[in-house]
Design a protein around this nucleic acid. Sequence first.
DNA 1: CGACTTCTTGAGGAGACTCAAGGGTGGTGG
DNA 2: CCACCACCCTTGAGTCTCCTCAAGAAGTCG
Lengths: 243, 243
Amino acid sequence: MQGQAATVRFASLARLKRDDIRALREMAGPTSRYPAGSFLQVAGSPVSDPMLLLDGWAISSLDVTEGGRQIVKVHMPGDLVGLTSLPFTTCVDTVIALNDVQVCTVSQAAIGKLFHNNARLAALLFLISLEERVMLADRLVMVGRTATSQRIAALILQLRDRMLRSDPSIGLSFRFPLTQLHVADMIGVTTVHVSRIVQELANEGLLKWERGKVTILDIKALQLWVGTTSRELVQEPTWLPLP
Amino acid sequence: MQGQAATVRFASLARLKRDDIRALREMAGPTSRYPAGSFLQVAGSPVSDPMLLLDGWAISSLDVTEGGRQIVKVHMPGDLVGLTSLPFTTCVDTVIALNDVQVCTVSQAAIGKLFHNNARLAALLFLISLEERVMLADRLVMVGRTATSQRIAALILQLRDRMLRSDPSIGLSFRFPLTQLHVADMIGVTTVHVSRIVQELANEGLLKWERGKVTILDIKALQLWVGTTSRELVQEPTWLPLP
DNA sequence: CGACTTCTTGAGGAGACTCAAGGGTGGTGG
DNA sequence: CCACCACCCTTGAGTCTCCTCAAGAAGTCG
């Protein structure tokens, strides 16, 4: 049960062997639940064990001295939360639950054992973290070099793509648990500006955003507008260690 | 010889055992040199083997559809170039040599073997890639949420810190192989604006920038101005697999 | 000595910000 | 069941950062 979400994530790059799946399940520690708004991790506190997000969404953000924040990642079920802090002595980011979430801890020791006992899964974990680094680079490009309307459109399309991975049945209209403040904090503008640009996008017949729900009206035009850079994941890299 | 640069990089997180060092040297393939301005890798081309940068600097950038580019990383000796493209079928970024460089290839197969034969080094490689992801997140914060003068100051301080890692002897005045265009492409503004802000920083007695050479005039004030978020690397993580 | 590339300077304009106030919506308690 | 509060979104006016365009100066390389 607990390994389910993680399994999906790992399997995006290579088919898992029976042993792989067993190893993943064994890594998972006790499960716990937190209500919406909970702090799952606080930047600056000592690094503890990473967590596997089983259900619900969460955001990672870094604080800016002057009182703003930049959201660096939206976590969805299957994501490992707190991994990025591993190389450091204190937590890098603050993680907040967007809705009610369910997590289980994955101890640092378990990760060490993974590298020792299952080179194949360890390599997959490495690849996943590289993929996330690229997603971050894409966001940087977006924030540094595109107009706000493109950023908003790109963000919505990306999040929908990630939702599609775990639920291929969602259509052009879907629940969207981020507020405009969250989006503003992700793309580096103010809420006021997000509000205005969302209206523009609506006026142009591209998308509609009503409290907690987004409807894409013209997905072709939207993709064209953001200048879609689709990246294809490699399947079964030849160099992966065998199980 | 060839493993030298990489050794330094890995050793930032944990002391290397004799076997570790031997394993690193064995990974390195043939060495080659490229003149300044060479394309070491082109975004969109099929993924080939990563390279270990032995000497010289290089930049990774992503292209924007409208004709701009965003530089996502400055590579220095010891950095593995092209790793980020591993999870994908085509290269993610374009890598250009800033000055004359020397590289050696590190085949994908060698990386696979590393995971298989040396769990400890593999885990260190994983940690290094996590660290780079955090550096990217920091850049995102900078681009998304701070004034241009802070971005420039932060960039210069960061690059100097990285130079210090390999050469503890550099002082407050040092060679700086990036042009203002490069800096502009890193922080998401135009050269024109960079030029003006650099002059402001000079007028305020913070730093001086003359073609290829930067002098920090008041490092305390500069660090204060950027709101220094120094991160301390963990030493000898307890969970690392033993050799 | 040209031909580049890099950096500088000026003027005008657009995008995004700040501040401030008001309207919805959902939740909570009396 | 209604009143109230907290949070989210909207709207307007004025301001500032940063951009664009354009031209020129200062190095740099063949």
